[in-house]
Design a protein around this nucleic acid. Structure first.
Length: 800
RNA sequence: GCAGGUGUGGCGAAAUUGGCAGACGCACUAGACUUAGGAUCUAGCGGAGCAAUCCAUGGGGGUUCAAGUCCCUUCACCUGCACCA
């Protein structure tokens, strides 16, 4: 019938030549910034899931442009990270070349799909011109005291002799060889994200994220209010500090638990009488994989410290101290006060090791289980009798503060960001270590610090980055004192490059700064940011943290980077499972485009279902959408030479205009498509349609299926190309029919429908309803109890 | 365990937010046109029933003239987080 390939290529070229999708950094038009997460250019090419979100935002971008906005809709590539590195290790090639090839494939696929990205702004995070600024920004963190070195555990595979990312060591098992991974202490660069915890929480109020995304962020930050309490170590001046959310239960403390990694175990080694046993337990805890350690069904284990006791600050009683791996080293102070009567985990522990349980709040049976509910305080000295938990907590904190043995404290689950990777394929961290001066930043004018090629891409045997083997790169002079020094060989994590990329899109070719203040001010916040739900926590937090930091440094004009964040559901295989090579259910967008065309693929992915939900692929569904486009094409033969709407279609057309724009702006793409299908069905019923009828449906469909609609519009010479036209407006006066169907029911059951004039008065509706044969049948001989009339909707007669 | 979400025909889903459940599409059935159909057109398509009608939105209960929609309860599945003190 028509050659969609030829049509698609023609229009793609036309758009490119016209540069109609290139955003201007200075414009009288109102700006609109649409951002969709840039992809990782993997070797397997674009996924049909990419097509879904890109089409969705493309449709929005096209509508916004046709509504007169200066739209920024950019695309780039996030190309540092594991997959390219794995490929490099396997094939002994420099990853940059492979990345280049993959990007080429991705770009060409996206162009074939007709996305209206502004390609003039494209970049990859691996471009030295880009990572120069990633490095520069890292130095700003350093200068502000927010980047520091600390001993942190990494996942270490004793078999491969290599450090692994959390992803590669999932569940404590080395992905490559299957052996159990260990924890190994390594000095790593950290970013002080924890100091932004409150800002990250408060900043959410300035955004319009989907609720579930806000909640995910809030949970991840994990703010919890409580108190820090000092327990004096018996026989020492030192105190053991714990964090608790339940200071009101202090009188119920019967033991303390420290994590096996707690620093006091070393400090007070000489005090501990059963040191051998303790050391053995520490070894045991270390050998546990992440999964084993966090397995809730696992029985509690632990060792009591002999000769090491603390004093309860509220009643001066001596308390035994244990170590157990159920207490985490990296949360709170790494030690807890245990109140078995009112905490489930402490209860479990106390029961197992026969430790006394003292209830301090009335309620429940604390010989059987921990009571975590509310109640009257008992066994708590002067606090006895308080029934309100909130009051009890604040009174206790007041008391602790008075005595100088504790204070109010807010804790966060959110931790500092481990910013080092012992990996090759990442941005080099621009720091130099000098014996005399310590850590010295690479001078800014020497950036970018180029990532050199190396003889081997695998991490070294000591767990260092392969860069450590490039001696003439590592060895350098200290920028401060000029003596021999060494470069940091760790690289940045994958997340670094994607933590500010939306800013670079605003001014991608700037070589003086990461983006000019003018550009940053003009584009402001990203208006609409779309990405996968899997990035709702980490990426989004890193990006917001990074941005908030830049704001505090006066480097960006807005506190928050993204106004609205939305996420799309996955496209699953035809069998309802996640698409993967091993499951053999992968659908290649190229194959679909070749068989049905880009427009059909785009239309189908918009029609597939609720945008926010997962959806299973169906090639038959795609065929159906192709048929719909074919029908649109065939309708051209019905076009007459009239220039106004067909009278009978006018209302439906106006309604459809309204619905399509609203639906696309609210992510209800599926109903936008279905509205257009309904309209096309109505057109099809008529012998002829007008030029305006036809141009309008093409125009409405254009954001979703841009090629075929442009072609038909031009073929019939209906008007200027859509990319340079204004989107149709609906007439508010013509979106309601003058006739309306009224449901007539008896006792809530539908008995008849009547067609009446819009806004027919109540009395008239009731009278008409009662004339209906089937209504009469059901009310005859019965007593009418109630009559409900809702104008333009329904009549309900209640009988007995 | 906690948090969030979902549950409607054979399938993907709609439902103006309390007012005719199943729009639109797929699959399927019958027919038309055709050398042919993976094209197009016509008709049908939740279940039961010849029909009037009855039953149906995971299950149970409630509010209401009226419930897919609100409330209570229960089950199932999905996604995060998970011994966070």
């Amino acid at each position: 019938m028509y050659d969609f390939k030829e049509i698609e290529e023609k229009w793609q070229k036309r758009w490119e030549d016209a540069k109609c999708f290139e955003a201007k950094n200075a414009s009288d038009k109102e700006k609109y910034y649409l951002l969709v997460e840039f992809p990782y250019p993997s070797g397997s090419g674009l996924h049909v899931g990419h097509v879904r979100s890109y089409t969705a935002l493309d449709a929005m971008a096209r509508i916004k442009r046709m509504r007169g906005y200066n739209v920024l809709f950019p695309m780039g590539f996030d190309a540092f990270g594991a997959p390219a590195e794995q490929y490099a290790i396997k094939n002994h090639v420099y990853p940059a070349n492979m990345v280049k090839d993959c990007i080429k494939t991705f770009r060409s696929q996206m162009k074939k799909l007709g996305f209206s990205f502004d390609w003039s702004r494209e970049f990859a995070t691996t471009d030295p011109e880009y990572y120069k600024w990633t490095q520069w920004q890292f130095l700003q963190f350093y200068k502000a005291g927010l980047a520091y070195k600390a001993e942190k555990e990494i996942n270490w595979c004793p078999n491969c002799l290599t450090g692994l990312s959390n992803e590669d060591a999932e569940g404590g098992i080395c992905e490559r060889c299957g052996s159990k991974t260990e924890k190994k202490l390594k000095s790593q660069w950290m970013l002080k994200m924890s100091s932004y915890a409150d800002k990250l929480l408060a900043g959410l109020d300035k955004t319009d994220f989907m609720d579930k995304i806000k909640i995910a962020q809030i949970n991840w930050i994990g703010r919890s209010e409580g108190a820090e309490v000092d327990f004096k170590i018996d026989g020492e001046e030192d105190t053991l500090k714990v964090f608790t959310t339940r200071p009101d239960t202090l009188y119920g403390v019967t033991f303390m638990v420290m994590s096996p990694e707690h620093k006091y175990l070393e400090k007070y080694e000489s005090k501990i009488k059963n040191l051998d046993e303790v050391k053995k337990y520490q070894e045991y805890a270390k050998s546990k994989t992440e999964i084993e350690r966090t397995d809730l069904t696992r029985e509690k284990t632990g060792v009591k410290l002999e000769g090491f006791e603390v004093i309860n600050p509220v009643n001066d009683e001596k308390i035994e101290v244990w170590i157990s791996d159920y207490v985490l080293a990296n949360y709170g102070t790494g030690a807890i006060m245990a109140v078995p009567a009112h905490d489930e985990r402490d209860f479990e522990f106390a029961t197992k090791f026969n430790i006394p349980i003292i209830p301090v709040i009335e309620g429940g049976d604390t010989t059987k289980e921990a009571y975590t509910g509310d109640g009257k305080m008992i066994n708590s000295g002067k606090f006895n009798g308080i029934t309100n938990k909130k009051e009890a907590i604040s009174k206790m904190i007041e008391y602790l503060e008075e005595k100088g043995v504790g204070e109010k404290k807010i804790n966060y689950r959110l931790q500092d960001w481990i910013f080092s990777r012992q990996r090759f394929w990442g941005e080099p961290i621009p720091m130099i270590y000098c014996e005399k001066c310590g850590w010295v930043p690479v001078p800014e004018e020497e950036l970018p610090l180029i990532l050199p090629d190396v003889p081997s891409y695998e991490p070294t045997e000591t767990g260092e980055s392969p860069l450590a083997n490039v001696t003439d790169w590592v060895n350098c002079k200290c920028p401060k004192c000029g003596s021999d020094a060494k470069r940091e060989t760790d690289t940045m994590p994958n997340w670094a490059g994607s933590s500010w990329y939306w800013l670079r899109f605003m001014d991608p070719h700037n070589d003086k700064c990461f983006a000019s203040m003018d550009a940053l001010k003009y584009w402001g916040m990203v208006d609409y940011y779309n990405g996968g739900m899997e990035h709702a926590t980490r990426h989004l937090l890193y990006a917001r943290f990074w941005h908030e930091f830049l704001y505090d440094q006066g480097l960006v004009p807005t506190e928050e980077p993204f106004k609205k964040r939305v996420s799309h559901g996955m496209i699953l295989g035809e069998n309802g499972e996640k698409m993967s090579k091993s499951r053999g259910n992968v659908v290649n967008p190229d194959d679909m485009m070749n068989a049905y065309g880009a427009d059909a693929l785009r239309t189908y992915e918009m029609f597939i279902g609720d945008y926010a939900k997962d959806a299973s692929w169906s090639e038959n569904g795609l065929k159906g959408c192709k048929r719909f486009l074919d029908k649109i094409y065939r309708l051209k033969d019905k076009v007459n030479d009239k220039e106004e709407y067909t009278k009978d279609l006018e209302i439906l057309i106006n309604k459809t205009i309204k619905k399509v724009e609203e639906d696309i702006n609210t992510m209800n793409y599926n109903t936008a498509v279905s509205a257009l299908m309904i309209l096309s069905n109505e057109y099809d019923k008529l012998d002829s349609i007008t030029r305006k009828d036809y141009r309008t449906i093409l125009h409405l469909l254009n954001p979703i299926a841009p090629h075929i609609t442009e072609e038909l519009n031009e073929m019939l010479n209906l008007g200027p190309a859509f990319y340079e036209s204004t989107f149709p407006e609906y007439d508010e006066n013509k979106i309601t029919f003058d006739k309306v169907n009224i449901a007539c029911s008896v006792n809530g059951k539908l008995r008849a429908t009547i067609e009446v004039d819009m806004d027919t008065p109540k009395e008239e509706l009731l009278r008409l309803a009662k004339e209906q044969e089937n209504v009469i049948k059901h009310i005859e001989g019965k007593e009418i109890v109630k009559e409900i009339v809702v104008p333009n909707k329904i009549v309900n007669i209640v009988v007995k």
